[in-house]
Design a protein around this nucleic acid. Structure first.
Lengths: 192, 192
DNA sequence: TCATCCATGTAATTTGTTACATGATTCG
DNA sequence: CGAATCATGTAACAAATTACATGGATGA
């Protein structure tokens, strides 16, 4: 469900091909959303059929076709509507579920898992901190394109809004790290 | 995918019918996981076919059948394995995605959304705080059943592990609240 | 010319959601 | 006897994941 809006949101910045979008969403944890190309291409076609996107196909070289998608007015309306629609119940996190059942496994194993978690979240903090800074410098590909179509007096505000989200992700990761650090101590005490 | 393990984890505490499980998971945001009964019943049957669960059907009254499921040794092995297996990429949150695109809608609308968010997260903090306390008092239905089969010297440790998870959920909700509060100020400034 | 990147797809499977549907039992 | 609760399902649909698959363009 969210992929559709992720695509709309990115295409709102500038038209892109499925390939470009797939790279943008390529499963790396660096951005807010991810999806494999095998999901992206069919979704784009569906959205075009629904009038949310416009497609333009051209030929690169001799015969290599590529289709560039851009957001339509209808697509923009749908995106705006979605952004402020009721968020529904909070997203549930399978990681929390594991942790609830952590008491049935060997404490050492859990400590190992928590260690891995801390490591990964620490990496993410670094990545996201960088990204937030880059956004505030207006120094990311997408944001640059995005700002071209917007009045200069809005630029700071727009960059700040996007950067804020990465600040939040950093804060969430740090919450995890603090919790996991305390939890490891607990498990060590328990094992002692 | 996670539902299977959620079911295993709950059934590890005590055998239950689909109906009881459905109540436990009934979409209320109170617990860590949720699922509708229409998902639970078929999943239970599949898991029984796979040997993860054992089913026992009895008759209540004249002809009302009900099937109680209990976890098998194989199910327990599968659960333990899952708990400490690689968590993979972090769960992505559609809410964050909305926020990234918040710059294209009316600031007032976003402020309204953030207000709703703060309200809900505040409710959740209260609920989860209560639940963590109840767990530390060993005063929840499931935990009581769960502890019956475990040696008394483990009781504190088990309760503490489960309570920890709700502490984390509280901390995460508070992170959201703090962020949203600051973000509202930003939007008010931007609108001024 | 060969490896890397560009570019797009299909198919199978699994998972989850929403809606529809039925009937028994219990308690006041 | 009627309402609430117990108890279990099916069907249709939407979404996501994994694997399989193909071929053109570009540059060293």
């Amino acid at each position: 469900m969210s992929l559709r809006y992720a695509l709309l949101g990115v295409l709102e910045a500038r038209p892109m091909t499925g390939y470009e979008l797939a790279q943008f969403f390529d499963g790396s944890t660096a951005w807010v959303w991810s999806a494999p190309h095998s999901n992206i291409y069919p979704t784009l076609r569906k959205m075009q059929a629904e009038g949310l996107l416009a497609a333009e196909t051209d030929i690169k070289g001799e015969k290599l076709e590529r289709t560039s998608y851009s957001i339509t007015d209808e697509g923009e309306r749908a995106l705006k509507e979605w952004v402020v629609s009721d968020p529904g119940p909070p997203t549930r996190d399978p990681l929390l579920l594991r942790m609830v059942f952590a008491d049935i496994v060997d404490p050492e194993e859990v400590t190992k898992l928590l260690g891995m978690l801390i490591e990964r979240q620490t990496d993410l903090v670094a990545q996201w901190t960088d990204h937030a800074q880059a956004l505030r410098r207006k120094d990311t590909d997408l944001l640059r394109e995005r700002l071209k179509t917007k009045p200069p007096e809005d630029h700071d505000r727009i960059a700040e809004i996007k950067a804020n989200v990465f600040d939040l992700m950093v804060a969430q990761a740090e919450t995890w790290i603090e919790w996991a650090t305390r939890a490891v101590e607990g498990f060590d005490d328990g094992a002692r």
